[in-house]
Amino acid sequence: MEHKSKYPISHVVGFLFSLVLTFVAVFVTLKMNVSYTIVMWIIGSLAVIQAGLQLFMFMHVTEGEDGKTNVMNMAYAVFVAIVIVAGSIWVLTSGHAAH
């Protein structure tokens, strides 16, 4: 758990990957000639990957004796977030379309 190395390698790697993911997302949005749905799926996936990088390489979610609890807590929070976002959009837009 303690950083033994003299060089913050995981932070540097996480930072570089984050930069790449950000610019790839911008490139896909502006330059790729594919449908809206495909663009949203690609950049949405890139965002999830980048959030994971932050969680594991910057925040070290797994470390400490409560590491497993942290991971389960985050997984549950993400599950609730997906239910709230996807569920709300689904219910409210389909309800609106039906009336």
Partner: peptide, 17 residues
């Protein structure tokens, strides 16, 4: 960490809106 879990849900509601 548990507080951050609650923060994720807070922001999820705003993203849903």
């Amino acid at each position: 960490w548990i507080f951050l879990g609650a923060e994720i849900v807070l922001f999820a509601t705003l993203f849903a809106v």
